[in-house]
Design a protein around this nucleic acid. Sequence first.
DNA 1: CTTAGCACTCATCGGTGTCGAGTGCTAAAA
DNA 2: TTTTAGCACTCGACACCGATGAGTGCTAAG
Lengths: 350, 350
Amino acid sequence: MSAELTERRKQLLKLIIQEYIDTATPVASEVLVRKYGLPVSSATVRNEMAVLEELGLLTHLHTSAGRIPTDAGYRYFVENLMDRSPLSPQEQRTIRHQFYQVRSELDQWIHLAAAVLARHAQAAALVTPPRAYEARYKHLELIAIHETTVLLVLVFQDGTIKQQTLTLNESHDQEVLSRSAGRINQLCSGRRVGEIEQLLSAEGSSIEPPLSSIERLALEQIVRAMHQIEEQANEQIHHDGLLEILSQPEFSQVERVRQVLEILEHGRGLGPLIPQALASDGIQVVIGGEHGRDEMREYSVILSRYGVDGSVVGVLGVLGPRRMPYPRSISTVRYISNVMTNLLGELYGE
Amino acid sequence: MSAELTERRKQLLKLIIQEYIDTATPVASEVLVRKYGLPVSSATVRNEMAVLEELGLLTHLHTSAGRIPTDAGYRYFVENLMDRSPLSPQEQRTIRHQFYQVRSELDQWIHLAAAVLARHAQAAALVTPPRAYEARYKHLELIAIHETTVLLVLVFQDGTIKQQTLTLNESHDQEVLSRSAGRINQLCSGRRVGEIEQLLSAEGSSIEPPLSSIERLALEQIVRAMHQIEEQANEQIHHDGLLEILSQPEFSQVERVRQVLEILEHGRGLGPLIPQALASDGIQVVIGGEHGRDEMREYSVILSRYGVDGSVVGVLGVLGPRRMPYPRSISTVRYISNVMTNLLGELYGE
DNA sequence: CTTAGCACTCATCGGTGTCGAGTGCTAAAA
DNA sequence: TTTTAGCACTCGACACCGATGAGTGCTAAG
């Protein structure tokens, strides 16, 4: 009986979780009444705790230890209980200022985003570079480097840049290369990989004048590069903030550090979370082993998509121990996500 | 008396160090005679060990513990004792093959170098991107992205690419931008930053026709970017292989992990080692706190310059615990350094 | 429904004793 | 003079013990 969530129990749960997040030690009934001046005795609190445990929101490690939240407990906290306070105007200003300083350096954005996320959420941060759903050709440049070697710089519509080298049979001067690049630019501007492939196939061989050997070679590289980009679309994940989480008590055994590194570097355990975040609006919070992923049992992730919908998007978020300051982390992820979205919006036109 | 380094003592020292590197536990006299079938008794070995300790080549943590090498011991080992065996042809082939696969992707080289170093030397790897001593302008491209925003892609003679965005007062079409870029390319090709600055100053205002506002803006960005590149010349260090060293016993306390992270991410403690390696031929081995750097007392680094002398150079190497398989690490660093040097040589002409 | 009281549980910590690895020394053997 | 056997001594590692104390669960009274 009475296994229902009364208002008092909710408040108690909230306090317990906040306290645990704060102190990283199991919270005892006694401590709660003292610290927060509850109008009831510790015994009552204990009774309530027992009910919350029955409901699956709390556990304890052994009989004479304080309570700690379960995944479900955290989930309920995140969804119904926690105070959603955005970052302070002061913090927002600082962050905006940092981004303002690198506003023109596209490739710094993800570094900065990861660094700021890590510092403000005190967790490991992960950011995937913003990518278009499908690569579209924007611009090619061929630059003579040395005799028969040519630097091929490829720019896509989402701002991604790829550089490759090309080795030719005979040396050509910059003049010729520029003309070839110009021609390819005209042929391919705004095209998808499929359309460019056609230029190379029989179908495309009807173009006049026929493609020079340089042009063919360059086009082949372009097609290869575009396929490559689409394959590894959101696979490469930039991360930062290892140092931040090392100071947290849950990482006092190296084994944990190794696990996190494996998640961050190889994406082990992250599984479908990134694509999922990419496909859905709003903030995704995954607590512990919620989705049955064993490697993640001890960790939580908060992810958010960012970017211009339908044009160029990425995912950013934080990874930390299950005992994570959810309100703050979520606010941080949300804010940085917005900042990045705005930046990209300015770049590509909202 | 008799505190001199006889042949037998040298051989003993070599064995002790090899054994310690292997097992990570202080080595006992008894173990040595048994494992290597020495023609003397453990007592004799103990006497010899005492002499080696007197010479400052060995220590022990407490009276009844086996011996471990001191920095000087390792140093003597590296310089006079160890077997210098290059990587096996099999390994060399594997490595060359891996590099062959990414031969055209310039920006993959440092990633691959770090990854291969880390895996083969079982240590943390660090690689600075290859840089010219001073930046020289190679090529500029201006690409209209959206209304008044323009993507500026800047290529330097050493292959470095920088991308920036530029916001103009009014929108211009690609035609105009390309013409401006072409003009700047003509003006700046192969120039150093100083010469380009002159174009912007009073002295340069005599060019005809006078620079358009777009051209001025672009030039300003170019100058800024070149200064930036020269400042952070070899400051950014790419690293890899944290996971490799985590499994080593010396990193069983997180504190050590933090230290290494701080060295790798912020270059703390590396101090002048990188510039030093950049300035000298051959392989640099720094063992423990040899050069009085306290943060490094527990670690050793092996660095090598790579690249085309006088044209474009970088530094690569490994960082590991003092107890490091020096012969193997040194061979690996040497080999990868050669591979990278060859790759760059092909690119820029030997 | 709340609470005081109390028994019970369990991790933590300091202290103690034992064990074994390893050295250092000494005196005898080579 | 060098080597070696023998042995005392040192010190870390480990297990065990009991005390301590935090914290719960239960019960019976308010």
